[in-house]
């Protein structure tokens, strides 16, 4: 049964990814991107992982795709007609891409032909549950918060820098609107504000 689920999810994700880059309307493109993320998370659920696919759904669908949707709806992009460029670049791109994918599949089919241990779903030994009774999430947390905590902190700093950068890039001060500057009001005293006009 997980077998069929995997193939269903894989087919959905590949078809939806193709739709992402070929569909004309950007809103439809973002929605197909959401479908790609969801189906690839389902593909990873087949591997009996819990935390990583759920994080994929939360971060990719809940944050990134929603961000894309915001930008698409905010910018009022005209629906672009399919240009001739798409078909102009298809021969070279298709040739290079098909060569590359042929080479990759050739390498893959030669590299992983160990009979039993390559079966991921039904036949892999979950050492985590046999040796030490911790779940996937617990094991990941034990690793992430102890040995690799510095990378965790660096990831947080990366997110902070991205947030500050996005705010700095998009924030603009309107010079024509009178704003209330509280620090200027508070630093104003009678000595600096009241003075005699001399003529």
């Amino acid at each position: 049964m997980p077998n069929y689920l995997f193939y269903i999810f894989a087919g959905i994700s590949i078809i939806a990814a193709l739709m992402v880059i070929t569909v004309v309307n950007p809103v439809h493109s973002v929605l197909f991107l959401v479908l790609v993320f969801l189906s690839s998370a389902g593909m990873l659920f087949v591997l009996q992982l819990e935390f990583i696919p759920l994080t994929f759904i939360i971060v990719y669908v809940g944050a990134i795709a929603i961000l894309f949707l915001f930008v698409v709806m905010m910018l009022d992009i005209k629906v672009t007609s399919k240009s001739n460029d798409f078909f102009k670049y298809i021969p070279v791109g298709g040739l290079v891409g098909s060569l590359f994918i042929f080479e990759i599949f050739n390498t893959l089919s030669k590299s992983f032909v160990i009979p039993k241990s390559t079966m991921l779903v039904d036949n892999f030994v979950s050492w985590v549950s046999t040796v030490d009774k911790v779940t996937n999430l617990e094991a990941l947390g034990q690793l992430l918060y102890t040995y690799y905590f510095i990378y965790f902190l660096i990831a947080g700093i990366i997110l902070l820098v991205a947030m500050v950068g996005a705010i700095v890039l998009t924030l603009q001060f309107n010079k024509t609107v009178k704003n209330q500057l509280i620090f200027r009001q508070l630093s104003r005293s009678a000595d600096s504000a009241v003075f005699l006009a001399r003529n």
Partner: peptide, 17 residues
Amino acid sequence: MVYITTFLGVSTTLFLI
């Protein structure tokens, strides 16, 4: 049975797309 090659093929296809 899902082999690792199938998974890698799917992810490679996504990357190429």
